[in-house]
Computed example of a mutant assay.
Amino acid sequence: MTAGTSFEHRILITGANGFVGKWLQSELKSRQSNHSIDIFPVGHGTTTGKAIDVRDYDQLVDLIYGYQPTAIVHLAAVAAPAEAHNAPRLAWDINATGTMNMAYAAMEAAPQVRFIFISSSETYGISFNECKGEPISENVILKPINAYGASKAAAEAVVAQLANEGLNTIRFRPFNHTGPGQTDEYVVAAFAKQLAEISVGLRPPVIKVGNLSAQRDFLDVRDVVRAYADVALFDFPGARGEVFNVASGKTQQIETILNELIGLSGQKIDIQLDPKRLRASIVSIASGNATAALRTIGWKPTIPFTKTLIDVLEYWKERVS
């Protein structure tokens, strides 16, 4: 794709081959009947789009200059907290330095582009405890407690700095989100996969668990990408330079999620506590206040969480069978 294309919207998505990136592509494609949209997916390694390395600044400048996007949705990251913990240097290189490279390259190669940075609720860290279970707002101090959250917070600092230097940018802090296609590195998908395997006799009717007491703010990924697509396609003057929680304002206890999935599966399951999986949760309750997103860009979640669980369970049933 070269500069000067006739498409009204030219959306460049980094991390496009990941769980959220695929759903964002689907959301944008669903809008192509009403809008002139060209989607340019890029990612690291094997990808359906162009392969890039966000650590290579010159490569990013060439990419952005050649495509001249109207918006960049920067999803590329070492996204799983456990993976970031196990490979902290890689997490910092991709999440922090990679984001800095993308933002500076955008300013150099396409100064008018809207740069949409996807951060994380993990940036809040210990501040969740200080809010005593109340939904957290964007003005709370970031106090990350793991490599993933810290590297995302550092990336946010760079993007916020560049907003003051002319970068047209919006930052999002999404809370836990799940849906069909998520890997079993994440709790909802892990439970659903095990239940699907039990249903076809691949494992005994036993699920071994660790700490189920944590409460988290869960969303459907399809609601989340709707927010990203909206700001990629439309200009919200009040959103420029701002940061928004993407959250429901409600919490789901992990134990309740497991019990609901078991109920939806229609199976009799023995839940066993596994001491090897038992870890104390530093943050017991985490939820977000998304009033700013509703007020500024008109976003709020619409998909009932039970539907999300049904769809995740069905996805894994199809995969294991």
Score class of each variant (00 low, 15 high):
100 M>E: 13
21 G>E: 01
93 D>N: 15
70 T>G: 01
86 N>S: 15
52 I>T: 02
100 M>T: 09
101 N>Q: 08
79 A>L: 12
106 A>Y: 07
110 A>W: 01
106 A>S: 15
14 T>D: 01
41 P>H: 15
43 G>T: 06
49 G>R: 06
110 A>F: 01
88 P>M: 02
112 Q>G: 08
74 H>A: 04
23 W>C: 03
69 P>C: 08
66 G>W: 00
76 A>E: 02
49 G>L: 01
89 R>L: 15
41 P>I: 05
73 V>L: 14
115 F>M: 14
51 A>V: 10
16 A>R: 01
45 G>Y: 03
40 F>V: 08
59 Q>P: 10
45 G>N: 03
93 D>C: 13
46 T>Q: 10
47 T>D: 00
20 V>R: 02
86 N>R: 15
79 A>N: 12
31 R>N: 04
78 V>G: 00
61 V>P: 08
76 A>Q: 05
37 I>R: 02
48 T>M: 06
56 D>G: 06
57 Y>G: 03
66 G>T: 12
72 I>S: 02
68 Q>Y: 07
92 W>K: 13
56 D>R: 05
78 V>M: 07
54 V>Q: 08
88 P>N: 03
48 T>C: 10
20 V>A: 06
27 E>T: 10
62 D>G: 14
35 H>P: 04
15 G>Q: 04
54 V>N: 05
82 A>V: 15
77 A>Y: 05
90 L>T: 15
14 T>H: 12
87 A>G: 02
116 I>Q: 09
96 A>S: 14
52 I>C: 08
100 M>C: 13
100 M>G: 10
109 A>W: 02
21 G>T: 12
27 E>I: 08
98 G>L: 00
79 A>D: 02
27 E>D: 10
21 G>D: 03
84 A>W: 07
97 T>A: 14
41 P>T: 13
44 H>L: 15
15 G>T: 02
39 I>S: 05
29 K>R: 14
51 A>W: 09
78 V>F: 03
64 I>G: 09
25 Q>W: 06
98 G>R: 00
99 T>C: 02
81 P>F: 03
37 I>A: 00
28 L>W: 13
45 G>F: 00
28 L>Q: 04
75 L>Q: 13
77 A>Q: 12
34 N>M: 10
89 R>P: 04
116 I>S: 12
11 I>S: 03
18 G>C: 04
